[in-house]
Design a protein around this nucleic acid. Structure first.
Length: 503
RNA sequence: UCCUCCUUAGCUCAGCCGGUUAGAGCACAUGACUGUUAAUCAUGGGGUCCCUGGUUCGAGCCCAGGAGGGGGAGCCA
């Protein structure tokens, strides 16, 4: 492909974008991932990357982020100026040109015998916080701008990238339309969580109305606005035209949640499907989860193997009874090989009530009657002890679920579904939506949601309403599961949590 | 927000019953060695013991308040 510049430049510019290899030729740089799988035939190559370790005044372990594996660059220190040798430090950016040969040492198949070495960017060894040793995840979280350069976070964020790409690939192949729902919203009637306010006011001195209340009519949008907690309602509008849509964007919750599973800013995937019931919804969610996990396993094998081994090492520190029965790799494979278990809320309550765990009063909250919300200890028991696989729980009591969920014929439950994963808990929350206008209006009235504010939403039930369904998938929780990490702050580049908004 | 544990060198951690000059490994600096794999060996520099106040002849250690972090819970994805 040739692109001729259409800008008003004094001379024509031609940019050639034939392929990735041309792009790299222009950069005169090969990616380490590609070099490591190249047959060494004494070809001359140039590599650029960051020094991980420098051993014996001769061996540079070079990494450019394309893979967790380092390329060994061998220099002859007798032919390199003392001044340059001293500048080959952990973290420094260097360029090496030399010939690719089969490695003379063990531990790697190829290496570069350097003919020239150049320091592109120095790294003061005394000040650079990363050392060639194990660091705690907590410490690395404080230097999140540098943790990308570690093995663990390198693997985590390459897997995250693959999962994000696989999500788009999956929906694209299914014929779904990717739609961008707004980040700033004015509706506060969803009740999905505490919201962050968006305002242009001088917060020390906002304008007041005649009653002494803050006068949002004078604010930027002429009304009170917030950051979105869900794109679902807008997603439903789009699904009522395009049939199958999905969103994948940032979501904000101002809840004071201090757990390893919550973020104030996270990414959520929300498909919405017209002419679709709860069964179709469950099938779609299961197929999608298996698709993206398979994609990551196939495309990030080395990264996931590394993370799996890392986890095994970590587990060795734990007492025997706390160790997991499967490795990360086995767990992921298990998810692909087995159907998710589907049970109703009512069945789940029965299982829990009859469990020895409940009878021996090992639950902090004992399960006695139908209608109570399940505690995370109950969910964990179902997933990790009883079924030992992902579980889809459906048909919850309407009292503990959102107003827009479709009311079942029994008058007590709604067509909700939660997908629970081992170690993570709820990874998907979804439902078939209430498409019958009168039922929806009655329910909104019952729980005190003003219909005027959601009139635009109710229009979908007035004009061509139909059974439809969708769900929300917490992207970071998916990344947690696939990487085997345990704290959600370690699977998003720059985590935002209560009292923490660095970088 | 609640319960619980933690905070000592750049990192990971030890520090006895409250006692005199606060230690180790790694990292870093200098030197030696030179096919190493978190190289090795020798020598050296490096401390607001989280902060504030209190008890005491004396506090890294005891008490109170605060900040930050981990684990668990609630809310949820």
């Amino acid at each position: 492909m040739n692109i001729t510049s259409s800008c008003n430049l004094p001379f024509p510019i031609k940019i050639f974008l034939n392929s990735r290899s041309n792009f790299l030729k222009k950069m005169a740089r090969l990616r380490i991932k590609d070099i490591l799988t190249t047959t060494p035939e004494n070809q001359q190559i140039t590599v650029k990357g960051w020094v991980r370790t420098f051993r014996n005044n001769s061996f540079i372990a070079l990494n450019d982020g394309s893979t967790n594996n380092n390329l060994q660059v061998v220099i002859d220190f007798n032919n390199v100026p003392e001044e340059t040798l001293k500048r080959i430090t952990t973290g420094a950016a260097v360029q090496a040109t030399g010939i690719l040969i089969p490695s003379l040492g063990k531990g790697q198949s190829v290496e570069v015998k350097a003919e020239s070495i150049e320091i592109i960017g120095d790294s003061d060894a005394e000040k650079y916080p990363l050392q060639p040793k194990k660091h705690s995840l907590e410490f690395l979280r404080e230097i999140a701008h540098l943790r990308f350069r570690t093995n663990t976070f390198g693997a985590v964020f390459r897997v995250r990238n693959s999962l994000a790409f696989a999500v788009h690939k999956f929906f694209n192949e299914k014929g779904f339309l990717y739609i961008h729902t707004p980040i700033i919203t004015s509706n506060d009637a969803e009740g999905a969580g505490e919201m962050f306010h968006v305002t242009n006011f001088d917060i020390a001195n906002p304008p007041k109305d005649e009653n002494g209340n803050v006068d949002y009519k004078q604010d930027f949008f002429g009304k009170a606005t917030n950051l979105t907690v869900s794109g679902q309602l807008e997603g439903e509008l789009a699904a009522m035209a395009f049939s199958d849509i999905y969103t994948f964007g940032p979501t904000f919750r101002a809840e004071n949640s201090n757990t390893a599973r919550h973020l104030a800013e996270f990414w959520m995937i929300e498909p919405e499907m017209a002419f679709c019931d709860l069964q179709d919804n469950m099938n779609m969610a299961e197929e999608m989860l298996q698709y993206v996990i398979r994609y990551a396993l196939e495309n990030n094998k080395e990264d996931i193997e590394f993370l799996s081994q890392r986890l095994e090492e970590e587990e060795k520190q734990k007492p025997q009874n706390e160790r997991s029965e499967m490795t990360l790799l086995q767990k992921l494979q298990f998810c692909l090989d087995n159907k998710f278990e589907r049970v109703t809320y009512t069945q789940a309550i029965e299982i829990l009530r009859e469990s020895n765990h409940n009878k021996k009063k090992k639950f902090q909250y004992l399960v006695n009657e139908w209608g109570v919300d399940l505690q995370s200890e109950h969910e964990r028991y179902l997933v990790e002890k009883h079924f030992k696989k992902p579980v889809i729980l459906i048909d919850y009591p309407k009292e503990i679920k959102a107003f827009y969920m479709r009311q079942n014929e029994d008058g007590k439950t709604v067509a909700a579904m939660d997908i629970l994963f081992p170690g993570i808990g709820e990874i998907v929350g979804g439902s078939q939506r209430e498409e019958r206008l009168e039922k929806l209006e009655t329910r909104m009235k019952e729980i005190g949601i003003p219909a005027e504010e959601l009139d635009w939403y109710l229009d979908t039930r007035r004009f061509g309403s139909n059974p439809h369904a969708g769900f929300g998938l917490g992207f970071e929780r998916l990344v947690l599961f696939v990487t085997g990490m345990t704290n959600i702050r370690d699977v998003i580049p720059f985590p935002r949590t209560p009292k923490n908004c660095e970088f």
